[in-house]
Design a protein around this nucleic acid. Structure first.
Lengths: 247, 247
DNA sequence: CGCCCACTTGATTAATATCAAATACTGTGG
DNA sequence: CCACAGTATTTGATATTAATCAAGTGGGCG
């Protein structure tokens, strides 16, 4: 079963027919090497990108080269379902590792969401969760200290990896380098390194060789002021009023 | 003509029937006083909020009281069309001044978007612009210095006010206090104040008495590394492939 | 009048960036 | 397998940015 389905099942459950439709939505996967753009700022988006395997991130740059990582993609994540409406991408998406990406043709997505309202709603949920995550990052950048910020990212990735079944206990692949973590937290590499060492020294995490292990989840969450509510996991969609899947 | 229509016309044009439908979508306005929540974190969203008059902002708080302003609303802005899908608001929206807000019932929005695909697409555009803005803010918080950040917010608000016809030359109402600007930029009040004084000293802006005047737009944009592309203004939607208004 | 803010200034401290350099690690060509 | 180049990680020293502390001014409002 693919990671997208697994992820959407955090929101709702699907019957056999819906599962079939979702499976068929995912087209031929494309292999993309490490550190390559999946789609670049300025491009005219033609399809909906889905990350099947590997890791990726969204980023934006300033004309002088400064780069900010806006969020990470783990398997099952979608690069914005309605990206079509705009003529030009206002940011880029790049791989962190060799990845398997599927480009879902827009008309196919449209057909499936027209036929299966529950799928439409689940995709809308995925988009809203991403927006919510982006808001939480903004809160982090503006108000959390370096240590809180880093701890918060670690907590988030853990919950997200766990939600798609990719965590082994409290350990999981997180193939990000320290320069990249610096760009995600808005810290210089040097300061990020020292901040990370502090988390290690406090026995909160182990991080090295592309694997992150959370040694003390409660402690890490407390430091980060982490509240998983913003990820909207396990929100069974039972509200009849939640029918606005198409706006 | 209301500000919502004016705003959506940055994306597309409407015929008489569509204009009528849009007018009817906007229900009885509700007056809300200054510094009050329009909707609060944890609330179950019941309708789509539209700001007709006044100013508001989206914010999120940490348990210890630190608050981050995530973005500003100017007249015509919508507080996320698909907010229904989620059970609980993950952030709050509050007024900056006495405001006029209309709550559009979800089923009415649904009916109109079902009947008028162009309206559906325009609303999707509005949502995507907001997400794009949120990403630009994240870039600002992570990579721009204090001065660049403040200049960038000033540029953004100017373009947005201008787009809904609320700027007089390069002057417009921006009734935000310095403590609030501090929460928007992630700076302490003291540092924000000094940063603002620096912009004044360089004759880039005049700001006081709730009115912002941009004295040197080119200079302010250069300092902020501002590129209005992320606001996706004047993007006439002519692409036939842009039919995914409902996902 | 008196209080609560908003705004401002100065002094000091804390957080973070920058500069410089050494050590490891990774993949590549020979 | 080894040498090498290019990163990534780490450390120390210093500079810059921004927060905090403290206090004073001024406006709006009950």
């Amino acid at each position: 079963m693919n990671a997208l389905i697994r992820k959407l099942q955090n929101f709702t459950s699907f019957d056999r027919e819906e599962l079939q439709a979702l499976e068929e939505l995912v087209g031929a996967p494309i292999r993309i090497g490490r550190d390559r753009d999946v789609i670049s700022q300025g491009d005219n988006p033609t399809g909906v990108n889905l990350l099947l395997e590997g890791f990726a991130f969204r980023y934006k740059t300033l004309p002088d080269g400064r780069r900010q990582i806006l969020g990470f993609f783990v398997p099952g994540d979608i690069c914005d379902v309605r990206v079509f409406v705009l003529k030009h991408m206002d940011h880029s998406i790049a791989t962190l590792t060799d990845s398997l990406v599927s480009i879902m043709p827009g008309d196919r997505v449209l057909a499936v969401t027209d036929t299966y309202p529950k799928i439409a709603r689940a995709l809308a949920w995925a988009t809203l969760v991403e927006e919510s995550t982006s808001r939480e990052w903004l809160l982090s950048m503006g108000q959390r200290s370096a240590g809180e910020r880093l701890a918060h990212i670690f907590c988030e990735i853990f919950y997200r990896m766990d939600a798609v079944g990719l965590a082994t206990g409290r350990s999981f692949a997180f193939p990000v380098t320290q320069p990249e973590l610096g760009e995600a937290t808005g810290l210089s590499v040097v300061h990020l390194n020292r901040t990370l060492q502090e988390l290690r020294r406090r026995d909160l995490v182990r991080f090295g060789g592309r694997v992150l292990t959370i040694l003390d989840l409660a402690g890490l969450e407390a430091l980060a002021l982490f509240d998983p509510a913003y990820l909207h996991l396990h929100e069974a969609a039972s509200r009849p009023s939640a029918t606005l899947e198409d706006a």
